[in-house]
Amino acid sequence: MAVPLAVRYEIEELLAEYAAVLDAVDLERWPEFFTEQCFYEIIPRENYDRGLPLAIMRCESKGMLKDRVVAIRDTMMYEPRYMRHMISAIRVTGESPEGMTVEANYAVFETLTDELTRVFNVGRYIDRIVHEAGQLKFAEKHCVYDSLLVPNSLIYPL
């Protein structure tokens, strides 16, 4: 749907900044893109399409996002890797008092230090974005992925 250019610009800025923060593994800044009562999930498309609720990563508040970050930093064991997000085909698909619904395609590449870069995960973001203290925040972010078979492990958020 048509939205004022300034709004679209703001949304694109938000997504670009989001990608930059994740690509830089600046994980402590990741929860700050979300509202306190946010909902974030990475869910296989086969579950999403069939109405099955199971996600591979499910955070029901900003606190849970922070807990995920602490776990990634301090408790999980994994090989070093680079991630690179490509976000495109951004569309505002709805607007209501609860915020804007924004959808976008994403592709995330993964580079392990001793392997060729590979397409790690491809899917779409289905976001609900709200204004909070003059900034856009994700109230909901659903990463619905087509790449059902995850290549080994998913460490960093998408």
Binding site: P44, L54, A55, V150, P151, N152
Partner: peptide
């Protein structure tokens, strides 16, 4: 009650 699936390929 079925809750859903996860799939991964482990090398």
């Amino acid at each position: 009650r079925l809750l859903g699936y996860m799939r991964q390929r482990i090398p």
